[in-house]
Design a binder for these strands. Sequence first.
DNA 1: CAGCGCAACTTATGATCAAAATTTGGGGAC
DNA 2: GTCCCCAAATTTTGATCATAAGTTGCGCTG
Lengths: 220, 220
Amino acid sequence: MVENAAEARRQAGIPAHEQVYRSLRESVLFGTLAPGEPVTIQGLVERLGAGMTPVREAIRRLTAEGALQALGNRRIEVPVLGAAAIEELTEARLALEPRLAMRAAERAAPEDVVRLSEIDTRLDRAILRGDIEGYLRENHAFHSVLNDVAQAPVMKALTESLWLRFGPSLRVVCGQMGTRHLPDCHKDLVRALEARDGAAAARAIEQDVAQGMEMILQSL
Amino acid sequence: MVENAAEARRQAGIPAHEQVYRSLRESVLFGTLAPGEPVTIQGLVERLGAGMTPVREAIRRLTAEGALQALGNRRIEVPVLGAAAIEELTEARLALEPRLAMRAAERAAPEDVVRLSEIDTRLDRAILRGDIEGYLRENHAFHSVLNDVAQAPVMKALTESLWLRFGPSLRVVCGQMGTRHLPDCHKDLVRALEARDGAAAARAIEQDVAQGMEMILQSL
DNA sequence: CAGCGCAACTTATGATCAAAATTTGGGGAC
DNA sequence: GTCCCCAAATTTTGATCATAAGTTGCGCTG
């Protein structure tokens, strides 16, 4: 990940701070940034070949979104979640995501259902393959598309903030336990969308959230 | 608000970007920043007597929190809320704030109740006085303390993001309608906390949210 | 009303200063 | 003589600024 300088330049038009933001965000969700890992400005400047100001802005943004945590001492790290934090995240997810699923069920067009099915297929393959990053990416994509269909940009943004918070912990859990035993209530959800059954969609997501977060909680 | 340079320097130890952030945040919640108003970096540099980098960081942070909106064209403004946005904000608030109130009721110490009562007293006085900024500040303080008592930092952060989003619109409404007819279910809430009745606390907040947001919705 | 140029603003860099962490070295205790 | 602890020096990292370079939008001219 050192040759990104050239890659970054390639995407001209997109400001550097945005590129750094996306890159860092991916690292939090799917990459190698572990809970408790320190994030330094200068480290990112070197790793991404960007200037200080864009890196700085990206870090502030991700800190505001809860993906990073500013320690008092001008130091920044990936937050370490305790049991209380995970329980709170679960409660917050249960407050928001079933509502989004319900809205999605009321608004889903057939092509949306197709898109979600395709993602779920890829997700299953990633699980069988034991591909952790693939699982994380497709799982996130599934929920992201679902929340797009809900047409609720604010609640989607809040939910994304929650995902950024438990992302690193989820990745650790997957690394420990492999991709077997992962929750997958997506089939139920797709069926609920097809049937335009909001309540069923909400229940499916509720299951998915509860199982996923329980797994994180179990592994301390 | 031009002499803030000296004032800012006085608060040494707190980084400039943090000071700019707080100042700008106050402007969004209680100040004179109206929906649709453009926010320029240079304007803030001059107004606050700060450098570009700290201003830039503060803006990114507030943009991530939804207080500001980045238009595509490198322009930033205070978001203008339509009916759909207000309805979504209402749904999001109803998803989160009653839960926080319930948690607060389960955890409130007597001194917390006292603190909230005091704020509510000042709030009533501000209403009688017709002091809009005072109302906005005390109202926010009331809910902020309540959400602190709930001991749920993540859900509190999400809720703050919602307040930042409707803050400017609420202020406009108050300017149009004065401080009469403002919702105040805080007495019910304080009683519920005293009785440690979580369900009653949730109902009180639900009322408060519904009435307040309805008022914003009514005035377009 | 199309094209052009100006003015305002944004983006990004690198330098500079300050603060925190880490290393290093010396002195004392056992 | 060895080990440990504390303090000074070094190094790493963060914060801020001044400025150069690049966009955007607006108004003006033809």
